[in-house]
Simulated assay, not measured.
Amino acid sequence: MSLDDDNGYGNDSGRTDDGYSTIGGTRQTRTRLPDGEGGDGYNASRRPARGSRSLVTVVGVVVLLIAAIAFANMGGGGKNDNDGGSGSAGNKPGAASTAATGTKPVTGKNGSIPSGFAHDEQGAQSAASNYAVALGSDGMFNAVTRRSIVRATHDPAVVETLLADLTKAYSPGFLKNVGLNDDGTTPSGLTFVSRTIPVGTKVVERSGDTATIEVWCTGLVGMAGQGSTKPVTATWFTISEKLKWVGGDWRIESSSQTEGPTPVNGDNRASTADEIAGAVEGYGGFTYAR
């Protein structure tokens, strides 16, 4: 394992000084929202839009979040054509790549994370999607829950090295940069948001006990509440997870992340800080299944 790659775990990621530049909590494209009136982080004048950056991929193993703890600019990720379809013209995904399969979702749990995925392509896609959700959650910012998440999603052979690197990555300085207290707790009166939502999956490669799955995601990250200086914003990114069949389930060996594909922003009015905080508290997460 090496820490000298520049865009992911295992030839894939680094961080810059911007804690908001998301998985595991920071990986994002800045979006300039309309200027408004008011004193909270959602109605105040916005800062100039920054160049797009991918957030951190806390899912991988070989090149983790380096000591700088922010995100380096990401280049275009590999687009591999296969039966699941790439984005290129004339090679569209078939109905089976997105349609419900009729197979019941897994019922097992490893802690709070689904487990017991099928030893086939569908199972690998479901595992990759669920792992993306877990590794992009706010639980990654707490040392105790972070250990549980990493152990539940990764090959045991890489867990201890990954945890050691993540401990350095989630330093008090980094946590402060994203608006949290030194121990990862949220300041009084605010609500911290870090969520990853899978939009689709693609099987890049599958051979016996290994699989490479791409998960196209959108995510939310920021601080909601009156007085927030880091409003919740949306980002789009694609995570490539290299999975291995270990102990009767799919586990992550390494992963990388690239920016986009990103759709054009709609004309929706930006919600207030209180509306965003209320939505986060009122709408829970979900278990992904096809």
Rank of each mutant, 00 (worst) to 15 (best):
S2F: 05
L3A: 08
N7R: 10
Y9D: 15
D12E: 11
S13E: 14
R15V: 12
G19S: 01
G24I: 05
G24E: 03
G24S: 07
G24A: 13
T26W: 09
T26G: 13
R27V: 09
T29I: 07
T29N: 03
P34A: 00
D35R: 04
Y42H: 06
R46M: 10
R47T: 13
R47V: 11
P48W: 05
S52F: 13
S52E: 11
V56D: 11
G60P: 01
V61F: 15
V62I: 08
V62H: 04
L65A: 09
I66C: 12
A72H: 12
N73P: 14
G75S: 15
G77H: 15
K79C: 06
K79A: 12
K79H: 09
N80L: 12
N82I: 01
D83K: 15
D83Y: 15
G85I: 10
G87S: 14
T101M: 10
K104E: 12
K104L: 12
P105I: 14
V106M: 03
T107A: 05
N110Y: 06
N110A: 06
G111H: 00
S112M: 05
P114I: 07
P114D: 07
G116S: 03
F117G: 03
F117R: 03
E121P: 05
G123H: 05
Q125Y: 00
Q125M: 04
A132D: 02
L135M: 14
A143F: 12
R151P: 07
A152H: 05
A152M: 06
T153K: 02
D155G: 13
P156G: 01
A157K: 15
E160N: 10
E160A: 11
E160C: 04
L162V: 15
L162I: 15
L166D: 02
L166W: 09
A169V: 06
A169K: 02
S171N: 03
G173A: 14
F174C: 00
N177I: 00
V178E: 00
V178S: 00
G179F: 05
D183I: 04
T185V: 06
T185R: 06
G189V: 03
G189K: 06
I197P: 01
V199T: 13
V203M: 15
V203R: 07
R206E: 05
G208V: 07
D209E: 10
A211W: 07
E214P: 04
C217W: 01
G222I: 07
A224C: 12
G225V: 11
V232E: 00
T233M: 11
T233K: 07
T235K: 09
T235P: 05
W236A: 14
F237Y: 15
S240W: 04
E241P: 08
L243R: 02
W245A: 03
G247V: 02
G247C: 02
G248M: 08
D249W: 02
R251W: 03
S255E: 05
S256N: 09
Q257E: 08
E259T: 07
P263S: 00
V264S: 09
D267V: 09
D267S: 15
A270C: 03
A273V: 09
E275D: 08
G278F: 07
A279T: 14
A279N: 14
V280E: 13
V280P: 03
E281P: 07
G282K: 11
Y283W: 12
G285N: 14
T287E: 13
A289L: 10
